[in-house]
Amino acid sequence: MEQLREVLRTRRDGIVRRWFDYIIETYPEETAAFLKSKRDPFTNPVGSTIKEGIEGIIDYIVGEGEEEVQTFLDRIIRIRAVQDFKPSEAVEFVFHLKDIVRAEVGMRLDEPEIRRQLREFDSSVDKLALLAFDIFMECREKIYELKATELKNMTYKLLERAKLLDELDKHKW
């Protein structure tokens, strides 16, 4: 995939910009403007996390990323998992990377070697999408676990006070 990687490396900024815009457009218009314009990561955690996340993913794909791609994907998905997205909507942006890369590759699409490498690239994007889905599920399960834990903690204290828990029971909690 070396030739394609080379193309991606030279077109990195364009790819990041297009992919970022695509994700941001899934938010309402006024919000998209805010998410795009504010650079400070503490004023705009959603926009900056997405930006940082996709840069990390692209660097990983072109072979320059040091950190695990999972960390970057996690940061984006963790946010989308608690926002108003259906599971498909939350992870769909990953597939769109295929379109963006094709648009950036442009004329060189006619080269057989590039086309072959693109197929290889597509399958790595598919793997990324599956990984995104795993992370999404993990986040949703975490949300339900946190709800359950809060309720359990309240009940636990009551049972403990009422001396209805023996040592064995305590371990089960």
Partner: peptide, 28 residues
């Protein structure tokens, strides 16, 4: 892929002024 995604409505931007955007009670 682009042709497929065109048929899907992933864009949630409310159209029109806020005053016409209906409230939706979302669980959670």
């Amino acid at each position: 892929p682009e042709e497929i995604t065109k048929t899907l409505d992933y864009r949630k931007t409310p159209k029109g002024p806020w005053i016409d955007t209906k409230v939706e009670f979302r669980p959670g």
